[in-house]
Nucleic acid binder design. Sequence first.
DNA 1: CGGCATCCGCAAGGATACTG
DNA 2: CAGTATCCTTGCGGATGCCG
Lengths: 130, 130
Amino acid sequence: MSKQLSRDAALPDRKRGDLARADSLAREIFSDIANKWALLIVETIGDSTKRFTELKTEVDGISHKMLTQNLRLLERNGLVHRVVHPTVPPRVDYTLTEPGQALRATVDAMCAWTSRYLDEIEEARRRFGS
Amino acid sequence: MSKQLSRDAALPDRKRGDLARADSLAREIFSDIANKWALLIVETIGDSTKRFTELKTEVDGISHKMLTQNLRLLERNGLVHRVVHPTVPPRVDYTLTEPGQALRATVDAMCAWTSRYLDEIEEARRRFGS
DNA sequence: CGGCATCCGCAAGGATACTG
DNA sequence: CAGTATCCTTGCGGATGCCG
């Protein structure tokens, strides 16, 4: 299982063709995805359906603006599905698409990693000084 | 396998105690880690040993400053091990620690995800318009 | 070579207010 | 309730230069 992101499957084996040197689209996607808020939102939606306000309160510390912005980003990349109910007051539901769910699995792994190494990291910081 | 980041194992089950509401240390770590450059660096070091300059050229687009900065960050959290050789010219080697390797596994998963869904994402973007 | 400090522009992102 | 627009501040992050 290669960690390469290149789409050119014909290339036998780049010298160092991993993520850092991947083609521009992959890099762009990675940059979109690998940010705190996007990952937290994906994680928070999980396998449920969330309204805008729910997300706003559950992803704590996120601003109205950042939430909308990142939701648009995720929607644009096909990670979340956005359903607008023509009611009044309006209601918008967000769910993860299949790609979104797949990404969520990897985010879960990162979360698990964080829990697992919390103490060691704390220790490392202590030793490091600051 | 809980995705909770809370360190208080005594709490039976938070209503929505996932990452978004985790305690401040976990959040801080996640914020440190979940950024483009840190993840790319971890991925690039991989299971090898890299010098500063190698990283500088292989993590393309990264500036001198961002590289040092993120390396310090990773070092501080005990993810990379930094070895300074008292030679002239100086030589500094970076390797991943065990926690670092563990994180790398999850980053690999994210990379795999990106490759896997590249086309679908491209398609989604097309449909989205912009 | 690798690190640190300094300067500085620009864009990220918070606060606020207004629409459907 | 959800989204958009506007303003305004902050600090990210690039460029440069100097040390060990």
